[in-house]
Design a protein around this nucleic acid. Structure first.
Lengths: 199, 199, 199, 199
DNA sequence: AATGAATGAGGGTTCATTCAT
DNA sequence: GATGAATGAACCCTCATTCAT
């Protein structure tokens, strides 16, 4: 929000490159320029360094993805549907973005990614806040619907959710180790784990 | 196993650098040589590229850490003590190694880390096998002790364990978000989640 | 003469920058535009290249300074006062313009300065002619007043004057080496040298 | 003194370029490397920046030229021969080095040349000291021989010498304005001016 | 076997110049 | 006419790799 047309073009160029499988650490300015259909110099009219351009692009993309995910989840009417929508979103994101996801979902990875991000915490806080909102939204619905019942601290609730989701992410990342398990089955296992944890 | 003195010196140099907080992507050959107390050329007598040296050093370190962890876990006599030993190991590893952990524990991150690793799957399989052994060892003890009872597929059991551990890792990586939660409490939550999942 | 308002604004911008101490070789078009309060493109409406703009600005300034110097000298009524007015002018010019002076007063420096100037000899000739007029004006008065008497070739007379002035410039440029010598004393030495040379 | 073989090769490369007429401000690293027959990176093994390499090369060359000049002057047995040797040296230096000379002989030009030099005053002081030695050597002989007689302050003596030399440099730089004057005649004028100034 | 001096390909960044508005 | 956003050629510097010793 508040981004110029060129900035967005550059963001989109970076995202396109990352989704195409290029390691964010190895992206070249020339490649960004080509992917964004702008001159190499234009990037430096909007960002001070390559690092800043890539970092901001990733955050920009992350914000959009998370907002889209939230919208998807809000659309669903039952707790189970909402939770499955969350897993679906992660699954999709994983498919076309696994290298970024690897870097970002890794515990705390986001802060380590590009040193630049350590000094640009603003957007990160926004994202963390949004994630928290989604988690609370989900838990709230679960308890309201009566699907979840166990009275525990917020920490416990959050860790239960994270654990269920992380187990699923683990499956996504190591599909070859779980050859006979379908995505649907993995989702159902995750749901089962969540219910058990919070009942 | 089968490594020369020089190779080990180089591995130790790389590990020292990573533990000191340097981003593995940004390590320079000159730095490795200095940290390992060898000449720059010597590195190329034992490895074909910088990438190979760093990748193998990380795998070497990982194998040792995992073996040490396994030994720790085997030493314990109760299931609960074994599980807590696992969490302790992860916690320690996290403290002095968070950037590597971020890259490695991220789902599938290991394959993406250095493109070199994609073509050098041998050691990775060894590590995955070792992890599987640890997981099985733990679950076996849990069922034998009668602490775990639920009869479910191996996939379910593994995901339950991964979920509990991942929730804990999540806590480690975001300690600042869980300000009032001590490490002991987080460990106890993880154990509780595991028991609930497998009972 | 024959310069548009914009051209003069650009000249003034360049001169302001040089007087502020910026090395003429390192001036950027953007800086000229800012100093002149015009758009960057405007500079290219009036000059073909940056080089041309800077070179012409320096010549423009030089012409004005020399004309002003000539006027100052003409105002004085005695030979001694005229010579001192010349030294004063040089001294002032030196103070706020030493980097340009270095380039320009250096033997022939002007032709080497910007390659552009080698192909734009017109204005240089005008300046050289003006300098010659000043020199002749001075010498004419000296002989007319009877302060100078030695009959020698014009070359000798010119070199005598140049020598006296150059000695003074040398003093200005290396004031720190002549710590105990005041400007007034240096001027008086220059005058003494001139009289001795031409008597 | 104390320079490695490579450093000297690089110095020689820079000097070769400058003598070939290239503006020192426009020399490219690649050109230095080619002229010195070393790789581009080698330059950065011995100097931190291009600026440092060029500046030190100029100082190195200057020191050698001045020492050679001093040797030439010491070889001569009469004051007149010594003074003419000085003018000859300058004349030669001028012929194959006019762009550097322009920058350096300009009053104080040396300090302004490359900003780097402002922070590296050591060698400059050595050079200034050597010049002072030459000047004193010359004046000493002139008085000892009885060719110079006027008792004046050291400042006066130095300015007299500088003036005579500067007049000659002026001639060298503007030969086209003094078409009918031969070098021999210009030298003789300079000598005459010096004698008059110091008698 | 071990070294580190030397190399040069490669890439981030700058900035003179253009041209659509 | 005047502008400044956009461009990309140009160039400094880094650093993985080689190889003579």
């Amino acid at each position: 929000m508040g981004y110029t047309e060129k900035e967005i073009a550059i963001f989109d160029g970076v995202i396109k490159l990352i989704k195409s499988g290029i390691d964010p650490y190895l992206i070249k300015v020339q490649e960004i320029a080509a992917a964004a259909n702008v001159g190499k110099g234009t990037i430096y009219d909007y960002f001070r360094t390559k690092e800043e351009a890539i970092s901001k692009a990733i955050l920009y993309n992350l914000q959009h993805e998370i907002e889209a995910a939230y919208a998807q989840i809000q659309d669903k009417t039952s707790f189970k549907a909402k939770f499955e929508a969350l897993l679906d979103t992660i699954s999709e994101f994983f498919d076309n973005n696994s290298s970024t996801l690897n870097l970002l979902l890794a515990a705390g990875g986001i802060q380590e990614f590009y040193s630049y991000l350590r000094h640009e915490q603003f957007n990160l806080r926004q994202i963390a806040a949004k994630v928290k909102t989604i988690v609370e939204h989900l838990l709230h619905y679960g308890y309201q619907e009566g699907v979840l019942n166990l009275q525990e601290s917020p920490y416990y609730q959050q860790m239960a959710l994270h654990g269920a989701v992380s187990g699923f992410v683990q499956y996504l990342g190591q599909k070859e180790l779980y050859a006979q398990l379908t995505v649907e089955e993995a989702k159902s296992v995750a749901y089962k784990l969540l219910l058990k944890a919070l009942n």
